[in-house]
């Protein structure tokens, strides 16, 4: 599935929710179902700044694709991170760099995030794209 397909799928899922509580319940479920990140990756160099809660984002580059894994000490944040992993993980650096991220506006998540919180979200996306840029540069160098 392309990044665009996954985004459309998520937009579709969110369109079914009638109120904010449904969205939060969904995010909480997603947060609880995020696979556990090994403690060895919960290190300061994986910490994303700009979030009220701590978020660790780990990445691996395998067969030309980036695999993301993450954790947070807040459940809603974990839910958001889980969505981002679903969108961006297992894609090539080029696909990730070129991806549009406006879907967050469409699913109405940003309306419910204060600037500091949406800054945290933007920091996560920025970090995902930075990883992609770094792997792309690495790939070009080889």
């Amino acid at each position: 599935m392309t990044i665009k397909d996954t985004i459309e799928e998520i937009v579709g899922e969110f369109s079914l929710f009638e109120d904010w509580m449904d969205k939060y319940n969904y995010l909480i479920d997603m947060g609880k179902s995020l696979p556990v990140l090994d403690d060895k990756y919960k290190i300061d160099s994986n910490l994303i700044t700009g979030c009220q809660s701590r978020v660790w984002l780990h990445s691996e580059y395998k067969d030309g694709q980036i695999i993301f894994a993450a954790d947070s000490d807040a459940v809603i944040t974990k839910g958001i991170v889980n969505l981002l992993i679903r969108v961006f993980s297992n894609h090539t650096p080029e696909e990730i760099i070129g991806a549009e991220t406006e879907f967050l506006d469409v699913i109405g998540l940003k309306d419910h995030l204060s600037p500091t919180r949406s800054n945290g979200l933007l920091s996560m996306i920025k970090q995902i794209k930075l990883y992609a840029l770094a792997y792309k540069a690495q790939g070009n160098a080889v």
Partner: peptide, 21 residues
């Protein structure tokens, strides 16, 4: 066992403004 960010997000949605952090 509940992070202040999670709590604050929900409390906010209930129309109550508190500060977390």
């Amino acid at each position: 066992k509940i992070h202040f960010y999670d709590a604050g997000s929900i409390i906010d949605q209930m129309g109550v403004a508190v500060r977390t952090g």
